[in-house]
């Protein structure tokens, strides 16, 4: 009984701030502005501009996720090999920027990448050719990778540090070279972390609108931008909610993947 009482505040929290808002999104998504039931807001995803925005968002977040994985896996292996003390200090360094506001960090990238920005200033000083990636999809991918990389590093570091050294040594003793150990031991044992990391990078990248606005010069419309515009500028909450429901399908798929491969929650980040 007392246990149930203790759960009370959390229950209120979850109902008030998760369940009810979610139900409201479902309600708005399935009704027209008159309040009548409709599937039009869901079907609107098939409109060329929405479909294109979704496709672009899927593509860019997929690229970002792959880049994050390729960067984070070797890093997590290095961190693991450095042992607990030093390794966790480096992990701390990775988390440190997250103490600063996400918006500010993205704005900082804008200042860095701009035509007359910091990076081009340095390149110009060194008489090197300048870069021109601001307001392109490449800048958006860069922003996604920078912002979400810690979410990939942490779960990977978590699973890798749990792998017993003896397992690795056994593989080497039995004649496996580095590549074979990687493919047959490291990667299979870190699948929960990989899946968890992929979800934690892919989902926020898919739904972002801030990064594409700031680093894409508002020229590249992602599905997150469409939804944001419907809520804040066009005042069409029904369409915004309908499109959010469509996005939720992708989020549910990734959660199901986690459920399948990470049953014990080994890959959780924190």
């Amino acid at each position: 009984m007392s246990r149930k009482l203790l759960a009370g505040p959390y229950l209120i929290w979850v109902i008030g701030f998760t369940v009810i808002p979610l139900l409201m999104i479902v309600y708005y998504g399935l009704t027209a502005s008159s309040g009548a039931f409709t599937l039009a807001n869901i079907a609107a995803i098939a409109q060329p501009e929405h479909a294109k925005a979704l496709w672009l968002a899927l593509l860019l977040s997929l690229i970002s996720t792959v880049v994050c994985l390729l960067l984070a896996f070797p890093l997590a292996m290095i961190l693991r090999s450095r042992g607990v003390g030093k390794g966790s200090f480096v992990v701390f360094l990775f988390i440190l920027p997250m103490w600063m506001n996400f918006l500010l960090r993205t704005l900082a990238w804008q200042t860095l990448l701009e035509k007359n920005g910091v990076i081009n200033g340095i390149l110009g000083f060194l008489h090197l050719p300048k870069i021109a990636i601001i307001n392109t999809p490449a800048a958006i991918v860069l922003g996604m990778v920078y912002n979400f990389l810690p979410f990939m590093v942490l779960p990977l570091y978590n699973v890798l540090s749990k792998i017993d050294d003896n397992t690795i040594n056994a593989a080497r003793d039995l004649g496996a070279n580095f590549f074979q150990t990687l493919v047959w031991v490291w990667i299979p044992l870190s699948v929960p972390g990989i899946i968890s990391g992929i979800t934690m990078v892919f989902v926020p990248a898919l739904t972002t609108f801030v990064i594409s606005n700031l680093l894409g010069g508002s020229k590249i419309l992602l599905i997150g931008n469409v939804i944001e515009q419907e809520f804040t500028k066009s005042g069409n909450w029904n369409l915004g909610s309908g499109l959010s429901l469509v996005l939720m399908v992708f989020i549910l798929i990734s959660m199901m993947l986690v459920e399948k491969y990470d049953k014990n929650g080994e890959g959780t980040a924190f």
Binding site: S218, K219, S234, N236
Partner: peptide
């Protein structure tokens, strides 16, 4: 206006 603006932006 909003719909057409979306077409421009996409």
């Amino acid at each position: 206006y909003n719909d057409m603006w979306k077409e421009v932006k996409s």
